[in-house]
């Protein structure tokens, strides 16, 4: 559904590339996470994919449409939810959606239905300028779903939302996937990515450092650890042990032979830890 091949982008006239030879494919109905810290090139790549930045070098096709010549057909089948709550503040929530709805030449969803789904039904006729940031963010999400997009670009969809609303947005994303929508999710929130994405790409300094399913990445790069609890002098003590480390393995055997072992819990590495291992840097 999305094909990106040897993509480069430079903001200056020198040879410094903010996006440096990126290639990946996203299949139909897949949730693909694009992860990386600020300045890694996530937004640049996404902006090229949605036609906001010109394609300088490489190839990008979205549902078979070459992004070099993005026709109106392409914009009829994608939905874009920006991180910035970019709504017409002088228009009401309903007016915002009605305006954008009128731009599409494909079947659309009733704005009232979307506002209700995003918890904005009561604020439908209030000016968007009076909305809280979270409400504006939900209005942006609603707008991006107006044209029932086949490909949905999401930029930090849960950023700034309270946990309950964030959960509701995650449910919405899964519903859209179940309906066959391909989702390109840009974020630096590893928990969101881990929870939602079928595959993720780690982006660092304009290049893809790793690309795979979260599980495979954790298996490949994450270190599994064991938390053991045992009796010592009448009280309970605990230790972290790595099954890949010889000394840890010996210690585990020793505790078992002593009969002091009470509990053993395995602890998987998180995506954030994997990211640090792969790229050598944090996500913030």
């Amino acid at each position: 559904m999305i094909h990106v091949e040897h993509l480069y982008h430079s903001y200056g006239r020198n040879d410094t590339f903010q996006v440096n030879d990126i290639s990946f494919d996203v299949g139909e109905g897949e949730i693909f996470g694009f992860l990386g810290p600020n300045g890694a090139g996530k937004s640049t790549t996404q902006n090229i994919m949605i036609g906001l930045l010109p394609l300088q070098r490489g190839q990008v096709t979205i549902a078979g449409h070459d992004i070099r010549r993005p026709g109106r057909e392409l914009f009829n089948l994608i939905g874009v939810s920006f991180e910035q709550p970019n709504v017409y503040k002088r228009l009401t929530g309903m007016e915002n959606l009605q305006f954008f709805r009128g731009l599409y030449a494909v079947p659309t969803t009733e704005p009232r239905e979307l506002l209700a789904r995003l918890g904005l039904a009561d604020a439908a006729n209030k000016r968007a300028g009076t909305y809280s940031k979270g409400m504006q963010q939900r209005l942006v999400l609603a707008r991006s779903l107006l044209n029932k997009p086949r490909i949905w670009f999401l930029d930090e969809p849960t950023s700034g939302l309270d946990p309950t609303t964030a959960q509701s947005i995650k449910r919405l994303i899964r519903e859209q996937q179940a309906a066959g929508t391909t989702i390109f999710l840009t974020t630096h929130d590893m928990h969101v990515a881990e929870e939602l994405c079928d595959r993720v790409a780690f982006l660092n300094a304009g290049q893809i450092a790793a690309i795979d399913t979260p599980r495979n990445l954790k298996l490949r790069y994450g270190q599994q650890q064991l938390k053991v609890e045992y009796r010592r002098n009448g009280s309970v003590a605990s230790e972290w042990l790595s099954p890949e480390d010889e000394r840890s393995r010996r210690r585990l055997m020793e505790l078992m032979e002593l009969g002091a072992l009470e509990t053993v819990h395995s602890q998987e590495a998180g995506l954030e830890e994997v990211f640090v291992t792969v790229t050598g840097r944090g996500l913030q």
Binding site: G51, F75, Q84, N86, V87, Y88, F100, L103, V140
Partner: peptide
Amino acid sequence: EKDEGTLRAYLVAPGH
């Protein structure tokens, strides 16, 4: 509209 960012939203919709 530049300040609101709505111009970017318009550019990814099918308007000219």
